[in-house]
Design a protein around this nucleic acid. Structure first.
Ligand SMILES: [Mn+2]
Ligand SMILES: [Mn+2]
Ligand SMILES: [Mn+2]
Ligand SMILES: [Mn+2]
Lengths: 221, 221
DNA sequence: ATATTTTTTTAGATTAATCTAAAATTTAGT
DNA sequence: ACTAAATTTTAGATTAATCTAAAAAAATAT
């Protein structure tokens, strides 16, 4: 009954994300990697989404969303992030446990449900990972955060989000006391491997790798 | 990843319901009517469910659930009813608006989600239509309610549920002030067509048809 | 500029769930 | 007990989403 299948919605969401990262046409292989399918399957699906006017697609030239495709993608992302807030705020899940469940809930088809859920959650602006939640017309703030890897010695910033969403990474952060809104001060940066000593809130300083720092989104106070 | 598809789950739920009503083998046509498919499609699916050991099925002899099939069906019914409670109690939906949404939510696959939802709702025993919610091992109370059509003139009963779940019927009841727990007194029964005059709580008496009375589940005080 | 490598598309199958039309079986009516 | 009617199953297609292998196109490297 909905116009788009679960599968089509997942493709649109992935094309949206890749396209937002690069601001360019998305390659068949890039989509195949994220959908966990083969390039041949992606080619088939792109032709189909193109027939439905959800993507602009020229053979061998990559794919971008049409405005209708983007509208659908943003609706799915809105639902995904609202459900994540519900799971964490209301049901008590940890932020590393909600992704797979939200991956299912994002396809539930009911406008009224989304609007009532939004209201029940008091119209949250961000999901548990700091990602902005599109409003019901698809708008969301352009966030211009920095990564912790860009911050200089001695400076203090606020933790605003993550750019890596794996459970392993999120669990590691939780164990390290790094949560949304926490203050992080750079004590020292190792000149050799760019690893850092940081202080989270008033805790004792700890070491983190450059790799970790690159995936932490922060803003200056 | 789950062992059963949405489609298979819907078939199992329907076989469970038909089989609970009649205490006998369920016919192919009966399943076809509720799944909104053709008998040929049902035959195919029954063979498949039988291969998966979820139903006992002998060609031309009807179908019943195996204990594993019943376990799966009860899990789906548990989820359906818990989500309905959530939609009504937490999100403010009316009891006639929740069925189609729960029909989707019942297939979300996460044990932890169901258990946390149950806890969040304070372990409800009944859904918004008075139907009992199976516990996490599939047990639910055998309810021996009567229909309002069996009650005699002058007697008063408590409204406990409905056996018809259409939006039209539920909206009609809501407009008539008939909700779960309400006291209903039979003022008069028309000897010709068995229509009744009833008083709900302290409201002014009103007429309802025998057909309506047959679909109201009540218990004596 | 041509050859090699990489990427992408097409061709041809497969699986799940459905359909229509025809055949088989069961049930019901005399 | 037969015959007719109803029910159920099978045969053969169709659609969505996927795959592997082969062909085509684009990108890269000498
Ligand atoms: Mn998804
Ligand atoms: Mn998130
Ligand atoms: Mn369902
Ligand atoms: Mn219900």
């Amino acid at each position: 009954m909905p116009i788009t299948s679960f599968t089509e919605e997942n493709y649109l969401k992935i094309i949206y994300k890749l396209s937002a990262e690069t601001n360019a046409e998305v390659s068949t292989n890039a989509v195949a990697e994220l959908t966990q399918t083969k390039a041949a399957s992606v080619s088939d699906m792109l032709r189909k989404l193109s027939d439905k006017q959800l993507v602009h697609y020229q053979k061998y030239q990559g794919v971008t969303l049409t405005s209708e495709g983007e509208r659908v993608a943003l609706k799915v992302i809105r639902k995904h992030r609202l459900w994540e807030v519900f799971l964490v705020e209301k049901l008590g899940f940890n932020w590393d446990e909600v992704h797979d469940i939200a991956e299912q809930l994002e396809h539930i088809d009911s406008e009224e449900l989304v609007e009532k859920l939004d209201e029940f959650l008091a119209f949250p602006q961000f999901d548990p990972h700091g990602d902005p939640i599109p409003d019901n017309s698809g708008r969301m703030p352009e966030l211009r955060y920095h990564t912790l890897a860009e911050v200089k010695e001695g400076e203090a910033v606020l933790m605003m989000g993550v750019s890596e969403h794996s459970a392993a990474f999120l669990q590691y952060l939780a164990k390290s006391g790094v949560s949304l809104g926490a203050e992080i001060r750079i004590i020292e940066i190792n000149a050799f491997d760019k690893s850092l000593s940081i202080q989270v809130a008033q805790n004792t300083p700890q070491f983190i790798s450059h790799e970790v720092a690159k995936n932490l989104l922060v803003k200056f106070k």
